[in-house]
Computed example of a mutant assay.
Amino acid sequence: MNHTAYVFDAYGTLFDVHAAVRRHAGEIGPDGQVLSEIWRAKQLEYSWVLTLMGSYRDFWELTERALDFAFARVPSVDPALRQKLLDAYWKLDCFPEVPGMLASLKASGARIAILSNGSPAMLEAAVRSAALDKVVDEIFSVDAVKRFKTDPQVYDLVTTAWRLYPQSVSFQSSNRWDIAGARQFGFRTVWINRFSQPDEYQDHAPDLILPSLQGLVA
């Protein structure tokens, strides 16, 4: 099926969530990778738990809380670096193939959107920093429904706004749980398995698995 609507998860799919820590690796020391992994894991955990509880907090607040927890778990890293890391998170590097791939899809006539847990301010800053604002048609943030992925209301933001059937949307994410949620909703799903992770959620299989966004075709 030829798709004319391509929707991308942001963090981990377009933007490298570990870039903030890597940018200050010299000051952080040898435990930087551990700190970054805990930071990301807790950021996501907080979003899932809040949604299950029927509660909501801005994703930036969760990002701050998760970093504080990571500092507590990794005492070898100086917590005085907190503000530097938070500032860096607003300008995460995008993965190398992202600008060219999105530009190619855009040139083919496809509509391009981001659908993310990120707050509107976070996403707008990341898109501008990566110079993707000319190719992204719309940014959908969960803030509009005050629920995090994988709540169906999140994926419905796209189909409602663009007046599309779910199967008309090609959804790309590096997060396997996100792919499972999108598949359950009815999107055509492409799992961007950047780090050769084992497959899971076998009953919600992606339509396609790629090691990067390279290979997407309109």
Rank of each mutant, 00 (worst) to 15 (best):
G100M: 06
D68H: 12
K42D: 14
P99M: 05
D133T: 05
E45F: 04
W39F: 09
V127H: 01
R40D: 04
S76A: 15
W39T: 10
E124P: 01
H24P: 13
G29Q: 07
R57V: 03
D31G: 05
R65I: 15
R57G: 00
L105Q: 12
E37C: 03
P96F: 06
G100R: 03
L115P: 06
V127F: 06
L35P: 04
V21I: 05
Q33C: 00
A20D: 11
L85G: 01
S116P: 00
L50W: 06
D78H: 03
D58P: 01
M53E: 13
L123M: 15
I112S: 07
Q33F: 08
N117V: 03
H24W: 14
A131W: 06
A130G: 11
P79D: 05
L52Q: 11
I114F: 01
W90N: 12
D16R: 04
L50M: 13
L62N: 15
D133C: 02
S76G: 11
F71P: 11
S104P: 00
L81K: 07
A125D: 11
A113Y: 05
R22F: 04
V74M: 10
V98M: 05
A19V: 01
L132H: 10
I114K: 02
A66Y: 05
K91D: 09
E61S: 12
L123Q: 14
Q43L: 05
E124S: 14
V17G: 00
V136H: 01
D68C: 09
V77T: 06
C94R: 02
V98E: 03
L102E: 12
L132K: 12
E61P: 01
L92Q: 09
F71C: 09
D78I: 02
A66M: 06
H18M: 09
S55T: 12
A80L: 06
T51D: 10
L52K: 06
L62M: 13
A72K: 12
L62Y: 03
S55V: 04
F69S: 07
L92R: 08
A125S: 15
H18K: 10
D16P: 03
L52S: 11
T51I: 01
D93G: 03
I38L: 14
D78V: 00
K106Q: 09
L35F: 07
A126R: 04
P99N: 08
Y46I: 02
A72Y: 12
E37S: 14
R73D: 07
A131C: 10
F95L: 10
A121D: 13
N117P: 10
A66G: 10
N117A: 02
S108Y: 05
I28E: 00
K84L: 12
S55K: 15
P99A: 09
A126K: 09
A70W: 01
S36C: 12
V34K: 15
Q33R: 13
S36V: 08
F71L: 09
A126G: 08
A110G: 08
Y89S: 11
A107L: 07
A121C: 01
T63C: 10
E61V: 13
S104G: 13
L132P: 08
S55N: 11
F59H: 08
I112C: 05
A88V: 10
A19K: 01
T63H: 11
Q33W: 11
R22D: 12
E37M: 08
V136W: 00
Y56S: 04
P75C: 07
V49T: 11
S119Y: 07
P30C: 02
S36E: 05
A20N: 07
P75R: 13
I114C: 02
V34A: 14
K106W: 01
L62W: 03
F59M: 06
S36I: 00
